[in-house]
């Protein structure tokens, strides 16, 4: 990763990329944003934004558990988030309730538990600012490696599963008749999404992580003219938003994650206007 950060300073000799933490932040964002954008295509087609929100909001409890038990709170946060994701996936299949009701119950449970723990142990609250708003400027080399592997894993998954997930989202029984196992693919997708959400929290914080998934994919729907264009537009918008957002946050001294999301929202508005003008 050091080689990559050195290479970046050679290729892009800008003032704002002079500090090593800015270079690491840019590389981190360039791994996380496209991965979220690619997975976001299915978040939109499966209507899973609320699922992503429930997982991200479990971060409070995950971090608190780590601090209480003296385990690395990054790992308890990721582990707890994935556990919540699995819980939602299993319960929404078994329960007679609708998926959004099941997610609503999980959402309430994890947020309430987090608040109870944090409020009972007042000393914990100072750890939560970075969970709320993210802190991409503070990532270290190990975290970059994790983001890199997750980036590879997401695109490998999309190479194998994109067609299957698209068919499942269009008509699940039809996908089944083609020999695809919808339940297995949906669970695999949900677990990978839970991982991605928890790792991406570091970049944009729990309040905005769903935006990283949904906004570029929503803009892509306005611009793409085919199913193949969806993922490319989404990745392109997310990547440009990551670079421009990081630069603007440096200039303005604003929170990096929120600035990146604001740029992607700007692209969404442009895409919507383009769609209106084109009459599609």
């Amino acid at each position: 990763m050091n080689l990559l950060t050195d290479l970046l300073s050679g290729l892009m000799p800008f003032d704002w990329l002079e500090p090593a933490f800015m270079r690491r932040a840019l590389i981190g964002m360039l791994f996380i944003a496209p991965a979220c954008a690619a997975m976001g295509v299915q978040v939109v087609s499966f209507r899973m934004a609320f699922f992503s929100d429930a997982i991200s909001h479990s971060a409070f409890t995950g971090v608190a558990l780590g601090l209480i038990f003296g385990i690395n709170s990054h790992w308890t946060m990721v582990g707890f988030g994935v556990l919540v994701g699995c819980g939602v996936l299993v319960f929404s299949r078994k329960a007679v309730l609708s998926t959004d009701t099941v997610i609503g119950v999980f959402f309430a449970a994890v947020v309430a538990l987090g608040i109870v723990i944090v409020s009972a142990r007042r000393g914990l609250s100072r750890y939560f600012e970075s969970v709320l708003f993210g802190d991409i400027l503070a990532i270290d080399s190990n975290e970059l490696w994790i983001m890199f592997f997750l980036f590879l894993l997401v695109f490998l998954f999309q190479a194998i599963g994109y067609n299957k997930l698209l068919l499942i989202s269009l008509h699940s029984p039809l996908a089944h008749s083609r020999g695809i196992k919808p339940a297995r693919w949906e669970i695999a997708y949900g677990i990978l999404l839970a991982f991605l959400v928890m790792i991406s929290l570091r970049a944009v914080g729990l309040l905005l992580v769903t935006a990283l998934l949904v906004v570029p994919a929503a803009a892509a729907r306005n611009l793409a003219r085919s199913g193949s264009g969806l993922i490319w537009w989404s990745v392109l918008i997310a990547t440009i938003s990551a670079g421009v957002g990081l630069f603007l946050s440096y200039i303005w001294g604003s929170a990096t994650g929120a600035t990146v999301i604001l740029v992607s929202v700007f692209f969404f508005i442009c895409s919507y206007l383009i769609r209106l003008v084109m009459g599609r």
């Binding site: 087609s45 729907r221 003219r225 199913g227 264009g229 969806l230």
Partner: peptide
């Protein structure tokens, strides 16, 4: 999904 850009060709290909 009426707003999706997935074409007939895409739908037939993904299976």
């Amino acid at each position: 999904d009426r707003g999706s850009p997935v074409t007939v060709g895409d739908f037939l290909a993904v299976g």
